[in-house]
Design a protein around this nucleic acid. Structure first.
Length: 391
DNA sequence: TCTGGGGTCCTAGGACCC
DNA sequence: TCTGGGGTCCTAGGACCC
């Protein structure tokens, strides 16, 4: 029998703010932006703020309306990462198999650790205590024989929760769950389900897999069939087949000016390229995303024979894609680029006839990156990005 | 109230090859 | 002159999650 813990940090970013700023404790805290920040959304709301109806992904302006006296902060992501690392390393002391699935949650495979650590419930309480002692933060734990049920269970008694689903109870657990708590079913699918007369997990349970597949597609149909039985297979921590590295930015004011657009594309290019360097990967596929002022979003992508070798190369490809897609004159609220299907730099490629120039540039940039890695103070950036900066 | 940023996976259609 | 079937790769758009 397998035993999985899913551990989730409670209102993580907001809790860190309350931890580091004692005067914030017991008060509504909203991480994501300051009142007046255009186009910001709520990243995390403390439990006190949630009482006002504030929740993640809500436009910040709405949160300000709901609770003008809340404490608003933009967020200190390096600090959150630091605490996340610390907590993940606590988890490693309890299981050799920890799968982190985001900055604030992880699965621990606890199978066969009973002899070492005792009963699941006691171990969970010890982990909670250790996190609290070492960091001052609370976590919620879900325990089950499938990752899927453990994941849902951890969310049911937040904050500082502990929910155990005994072996054999997976299906009854799922059948007692509200449809909107089913992980993997979002707003659109929920609506489609209701339109088809399926309002509860039990309604889904009563349908055959074949029927669900015809109604909702092969993949979603099978997923739904398995999900209400508590084990839809490897949906967490499976081998990522198509890793990608992307950067996007929403601008406070719509872009229309070509120089500003090019500068934005250059900035995104450098961002993505630097992270590809850090991961020691490359990619042949570049995708560009444009979101217009009315929120309609379009994308173009192109896979070339040779991987992207340096900033100028990336920038040229960006401009090419942009020109192919952009409807001239429209205001742009967001630009994004993504390098898809990245692969290790160690995998050799066929060299093109005209690649020597690019290769030289690539080597120079590699050197610059290495210097930056060693000394983060060094900032060597394209001239056009420096122009807009304050002296 | 007017909608972030970083990801993963799925679908459907088309190109191309055998 | 009309037309199969499978496999792979690519593209655009969309759903979902934290």
């Amino acid at each position: 029998m397998k035993v999985y813990f899913h551990i989730d940090l409670d209102a993580f970013f907001a809790s860190v703010e309350q931890l580091d700023n004692p005067s914030y404790r017991g008060k509504p805290v909203v991480v994501g932006g300051l009142p007046g920040d255009r186009r910001a959304v709520v990243s995390t709301a403390s439990y006190e703020a949630r009482k006002y109806g504030i929740h993640s992904a809500m436009p910040l302006s709405h949160a300000v309306q709901l609770c003008p006296n809340a404490i608003f902060v933009r967020g200190r992501y390096r600090r959150y990462q630091e605490l996340s690392d610390q907590i993940m390393s606590i988890f490693s002391g309890y299981s050799p198999d920890v799968t982190q699935i985001s900055i604030d949650e992880a699965f621990l495979d606890m199978t066969g650790t009973e002899r070492l650590f005792g009963r699941s419930e006691e171990v969970a309480l010890r982990i909670k205590q250790e996190v609290r002692n070492k960091t001052g933060l609370t976590v919620s734990v879900g325990i089950a024989c499938t990752m899927y049920v453990a994941k849902i269970a951890s969310g049911l008694n937040k904050p500082d929760g502990l929910t155990i689903v005994k072996e054999g109870d997976e299906t009854s657990f799922m059948l007692a769950l509200e449809l909107d708590k089913v992980w993997g079913v979002g707003g659109k699918t929920l609506r489609r389900l209701r339109e088809s007369g399926l309002f509860t997990t039990a309604d889904i349970y009563s349908k055959s897999e074949a029927l669900l597949r015809t109604m909702f597609g092969e993949s979603m149909g099978s997923f739904l069939y398995q999900a209400v039985r508590g084990n839809p297979g490897m949906i967490f921590g499976g081998e990522a087949r198509n890793h990608s590295i992307s950067a996007e930015r929403t601008y406070d004011f719509d872009l229309t000016d070509r120089y500003a657009i090019d500068t934005a594309l250059m900035e995104l290019s450098m961002n993505v390229l630097y992270r590809m360097h850090r991961e020691q990967v490359k990619s042949r596929t570049l995708a560009l995303k444009i979101r217009y002022e009315d929120f309609t979003t379009v994308s173009v992508q192109e896979t070339e024979d040779f991987s992207i070798s340096n900033t100028d190369d990336m920038f040229d490809r960006c401009k090419k894609l942009f020109d192919k897609k952009y409807e001239s004159g429209r205001g742009i609220r967001l630009l994004g680029i993504s390098c898809d299907k990245v692969f290790s730099k160690d995998i050799p490629e066929q060299k093109g006839l005209f690649e020597s120039g690019n290769e030289k540039k690539a080597k120079i940039e590699e050197m610059i990156y290495k210097m930056q890695d060693k000394n983060p103070e060094i900032k060597i950036r394209k001239a056009r990005l420096i122009q807009g900066e304050n002296p």
